Amino acid sequence: MHTKNTALLLIDFQNDYFEGGKYPQHGADSLLPRLRQVISAAKAAQMPIIAIRHLGSAAAPFFNEGSAGAQLHQQLHPAQDAMGWIVDKRHADSFRNTQLADLLQKLKVSRLLLAGMMTQNCITHTALSPWGTGLEMVVLEDLCAAPDPLVHAIAIRALADRVTVSSSQDWFA
Rank of each mutant, 00 (worst) to 15 (best):
5 N>H: 15
37 Q>L: 13
125 H>G: 00
57 S>C: 03
165 V>L: 08
9 L>R: 04
154 I>M: 11
91 H>G: 00
64 N>E: 12
99 Q>I: 14
28 A>Y: 09
4 K>M: 14
173 A>Q: 15
34 R>E: 06
12 D>Y: 05
57 S>R: 05
27 G>C: 09
138 V>Y: 04
34 R>K: 07
27 G>Q: 10
27 G>S: 08
140 L>H: 02
136 E>K: 07
60 A>I: 01
58 A>Q: 09
136 E>A: 05
52 I>V: 09
85 W>I: 00
163 V>I: 05
14 Q>A: 02
99 Q>Y: 13
49 I>T: 00
24 P>E: 07
96 R>L: 15
1 M>S: 12
111 R>C: 12
110 S>Q: 12
90 R>Y: 10
168 S>H: 02
58 A>D: 10
160 A>W: 10
24 P>I: 07
59 A>I: 09
41 A>T: 06
99 Q>T: 14
72 L>G: 05
126 T>W: 10
155 A>V: 09
100 L>K: 02
14 Q>T: 03
2 H>A: 11
73 H>N: 10
64 N>Q: 13
169 Q>N: 11
40 S>P: 08
84 G>S: 03
4 K>G: 14
139 V>R: 05
15 N>M: 04
38 V>Q: 06
97 N>G: 07
84 G>N: 03
127 A>P: 00
67 S>M: 09
59 A>S: 13
39 I>H: 01
41 A>I: 04
123 I>W: 11
4 K>A: 15
141 E>S: 15
88 D>F: 03
156 I>A: 10
134 G>W: 13
26 H>D: 14
156 I>Q: 08
75 Q>G: 06
169 Q>G: 03
151 V>P: 00
153 A>T: 11
153 A>Q: 15
104 L>A: 07
85 W>A: 06
128 L>T: 12
164 T>R: 12
70 A>W: 03
121 N>L: 14
95 F>K: 00
66 G>K: 04
131 W>H: 15
144 C>E: 08
115 A>E: 05
46 Q>T: 13
173 A>G: 12
173 A>Y: 14
124 T>L: 14
27 G>F: 13
92 A>H: 12
94 S>L: 12
67 S>K: 06
40 S>Y: 12
112 L>M: 09
124 T>N: 12
96 R>H: 15
137 M>C: 08
109 V>N: 01
46 Q>C: 11
47 M>P: 05
47 M>Y: 05
98 T>M: 05
172 F>H: 04
142 D>E: 08
121 N>K: 06
172 F>I: 07
23 Y>P: 00
153 A>Y: 09
81 D>G: 09
171 W>R: 00
6 T>Y: 08
79 A>F: 02
98 T>V: 04
115 A>H: 02
120 Q>W: 07
50 I>A: 01
37 Q>N: 11
